[in-house]
């Protein structure tokens, strides 16, 4: 089970759909098995629009109890990496540069997430 304070999501926009590429917290990414299951369940983690992707990521944040969600396009993620200075904390750099989403942790949780 993925746990953390921050949930980071990297997505791409290709051929009129949005695909979730990476999902990780400050405690690391999901196990490969959980990620593969999630991809199968959610049809390659492709979404019709950014709103649906946001909703999905928010549900995940609710499920794992992460109060902070930050979204990145690959370009935004690359900019963080490119500008990171020697000795700078990567977590701080990511947390300060991503696009935040509002999380409501009081939302009812569904059973679907139990596997993750």
């Amino acid at each position: 089970m993925l746990k953390g304070h921050y949930l980071f999501a990297v997505f791409s926009h290709l051929q009129s759909s949005y695909q979730l590429l990476y999902l990780f917290t400050e405690n690391g990414p999901m196990t490969k098995k959980a990620w593969d299951e999630l991809k199968t369940e959610m049809v390659d983690l492709k979404f019709k629009n950014l709103n649906r992707l946001n909703q999905f990521v928010l549900k995940m944040a609710e499920r794992i109890g992460a109060p902070q969600v930050l979204l990145f396009s690959p370009r935004e993620f690359n900019q963080v990496v490119e500008n990171i200075e020697k000795g700078e904390d990567f977590l701080e750099a990511l947390a300060s540069k991503g696009r935040p989403l509002e999380v409501d942790l009081s939302t009812q949780k569904s059973k679907f997430w139990d596997n993750f």
Binding site: P74, R75, F77, N78
Partner: peptide
């Protein structure tokens, strides 16, 4: 120019 992986993420 930074080298990118298939997903557009910089090889880092």
């Amino acid at each position: 120019i930074l080298s990118l992986n298939k997903e557009g993420m910089a090889h880092t």
